[in-house]
Design a protein around this nucleic acid. Structure first.
Lengths: 194, 194
DNA sequence: AGAAGGCCTTCACAAAAGTTAAGGATGTAC
DNA sequence: GTACATCCTTAACTTTTGTGAAGGCCTTCT
């Protein structure tokens, strides 16, 4: 079963024995939230909606048929797998080597790119429908510290977050501060497909 | 080009603009260090040997031919992709929600399982050929703190690390302390392959 | 209107981790 | 054997992050 998010935000997460939660991946509208749906036995983590969400599920057989018949489908699936893996690696880098503010900034830059690709962001911001507690589970921080770092970013004049709207006042400076390198995000489509 | 580690340890890593390094994946003998060798254009990260290493490289065409001719090859490739993804997700969990000692313990438990599978560990330990500084880049810590936490684990009587040999005195207790759940590591081989 | 719950915000304090620096051990090159 | 380099170890100190607790704002339910 292949699952595609049509609306809303979802995530993959793991709950540790001590009760802590770590979100390992964030799924926005347009994302496949089960890229390994092809091998459903091995899911070691939970899947959850962070907002009310609409998800389309396609039976595995249909996916395989479609992929065989239309190469572009197969190509798109590979593509998605690859982008997801890249995002995951960048997540590791953030958690390991970026400070709290840098993690927040980097996440916002990433979301801005991803949401722009699906038409859900404009030049100076986007809708951020999840709680600060969700952000903390995603970034490996405490909720209090997320709030603190958010205040820092606000006071530096880099962004505003009111209601559910995130406004980015100076994306270039935010990218610099967060060590964001958008290059990895737009790799060329490869012509060498398996 | 598909690359297989035959001997030695290697890693994928990213260097940040501020000079910090984060290792995103560790490759032991028997691991494919380019699971996405199938799409070589998109490597956003570096590949490095952590010890003198021997790597076999197989041209992409040969891999595709072999995969088509012998389904078990294709199956094994999928398998490797899946295990690597699971390890990567667990890496995220460690960096986000485990303390320094827990990260070390978890890594040692993971290495013990992986190295046992390729015959490079015995019941009570294995060879750990990388430096504490490498460990710190892998676990998102400072080298000094890795050393500190290592001392803690030693003094708790959980392990010894002399020369390059790591001895685990009480694996069960170490697993408990590190919130290690080996379940994810032995998922059933799926019968539904693409 | 009032009560309740979720979320955001702030504070004071505690714990964890980073930094800088120094010395010791070990191994390699000459 | 000596010099050099790398790695390990420890210490003192600083910074970052976590914890527990409290109050405020807002929405929803009754």
């Amino acid at each position: 079963m292949l699952s595609l998010v049509l609306d809303g935000w979802a995530c993959r997460y793991k709950l540790l024995a001590n009760g802590r939660r770590q979100i390992t991946a964030l799924f926005l509208p347009g994302d496949l939230c089960e890229p390994f749906g092809v091998m459903p036995h091995v899911v070691d983590q939970g899947l959850a909606a962070l907002t009310p969400a609409v998800v389309a599920s396609v039976p595995l057989g249909a996916v395989q048929d479609a992929a065989r018949r239309w190469p572009r489908i197969a190509e798109a699936l590979w593509w998605d797998l690859l982008v997801a893996a890249t995002l995951e690696r960048e997540h590791i880098v953030s958690l390991g080597r970026r400070s709290a503010s840098e993690r927040l900034g980097h996440l916002f830059c990433e979301l801005h790119v991803r949401l722009t690709m699906v038409g859900l962001a404009d030049e100076d911001g986007f809708d951020l429908p999840i709680t600060q507690s969700d952000l903390s589970d995603l970034l490996g921080l405490s909720a209090v510290h997320v709030n603190r770092s958010l205040q820092d970013l606000r006071q530096t004049g880099l962004l505003a977050l009111r209601g559910r709207r995130l406004t980015l006042y100076d994306i270039d400076r935010l990218r610099e501060l967060s060590l964001f390198e958008p290059a990895w995000f737009h790799p060329r489509r490869s012509d060498a497909l398996p």
